[in-house]
Computed example of a mutant assay.
Amino acid sequence: MSSGPAVFFDIGDTLASAVVEGAHLARLDVYPFVPDVLARMREGGAGVGLISNTGNETAAAMNKLLRESGLSAVVDSELCLFSSLEGMNKSQPSFFVLASERAGLPAARCVFVGEDADERRTADTVGFRVSPHPLHALHLVAADLAVPPTV
């Protein structure tokens, strides 16, 4: 596991635009700055994970989407939590408690990054630091990283 904090990202509208076709997630169009930001966090010693409400998507479908989008190369698979697999969602504090347990860290050493203010409030209630945007999160954890990011 990493030596730094654990930073968990929402996917849709935070890391990527989610493209839905029919009732299923067809593609993730990752924002151009995202791979660099996540790689810099990992290089600095942060654990990088995902906390996402994924509807009824299977583990195989999510892994395929992450691979195809390039996100699987910049996240720690053991820190990826999906509502469809965990039986809970980001409106429940227990989802964030499970994330900190998976990271092996107290909630105070975890960060949730997501565009939704209600989800950030939920993460905050269990002690996570929160950020609305990946670039802001990079600065938020800079002091906790072994190799601080350059801007």
Rank of each mutant, 00 (worst) to 15 (best):
V48S: 01
N89L: 04
V74S: 02
L38F: 07
G49I: 00
G70L: 05
F96R: 10
E78N: 14
I51D: 07
S52Y: 01
V75F: 04
S52F: 06
G70A: 02
G47C: 13
G47V: 07
A61I: 01
S72E: 05
D76A: 07
V37S: 07
A61C: 00
D76R: 05
A59M: 11
E68L: 11
G44H: 01
N56H: 11
A61Y: 04
N53F: 07
F96C: 13
D36Y: 05
G55R: 07
E43T: 14
F96W: 04
S91Y: 13
F96G: 13
L71K: 06
G44E: 05
V48R: 01
L50F: 04
L66Y: 02
T54V: 11
M88E: 13
M88Y: 13
I51M: 13
S69F: 02
A39Q: 14
S72H: 06
L79P: 01
V37K: 03
S83E: 11
E86Q: 15
T58M: 11
G87E: 12
E86P: 08
G87R: 15
S69N: 09
P93L: 09
L38T: 06
L50H: 02
G70M: 05
S91D: 15
R40G: 07
S83L: 10
N63Q: 13
M62V: 09
N53G: 09
L38Y: 01
S84K: 09
S77V: 02
L71I: 06
E86L: 14
